[in-house]
């Protein structure tokens, strides 16, 4: 079967220079997407653990463990998970900046 080439659309305006655009292949697109899915998977696992696991499913188990003066599960449910969410998004932005550059799909 003939190898098919999907070209990313050139950006209009700034930074639209055409270096190494011809190297973009189906394989490269797949590799980029796989990498993205892996990063998303890892970050969403953390998202799940701090909110659903620590805050809800393990609410009673972690109740006896203190953070500061309050139970750990209560802290995660009302403070910790929210703080972690913010960090997760910025970490994703930071990682994807690098991945986009590596695959030459940055804007």
């Amino acid at each position: 079967m003939a190898k098919q080439t999907t070209k990313p659309k050139p950006a209009s305006g700034k930074g639209g220079g055409g270096k190494s655009r011809q190297t973009w292949t189906v394989e490269k697109a797949k590799a980029y997407w796989r990498r993205n899915l892996k990063i998303i998977g890892i970050l969403l696992a953390i998202w799940f653990v701090v909110s659903y696991l620590f805050g809800i499913l393990f609410a009673n188990i972690l109740y006896g463990v203190p953070i500061g003066q309050i139970p750990a599960s209560f802290w995660f449910a009302q403070q910790g998970a929210i703080i972690t969410f913010v960090i997760l998004i910025f970490v994703y932005c930071w990682i994807m900046d690098r991945v986009d550059k590596e695959f030459d799909v940055n804007e």
Binding site: T6, P8, K9, P10, A11, S12, G13, A29, Y32, W33, N36, D100, V105, N106, E107
Partner: peptide, 15 residues
């Protein structure tokens, strides 16, 4: 399917 391919890649958001 090509539309889906294209939204998965950042470059070209200006268009």
């Amino acid at each position: 399917q090509e539309l889906v391919e294209s939204v998965r890649i950042p470059r070209g958001a200006q268009v």
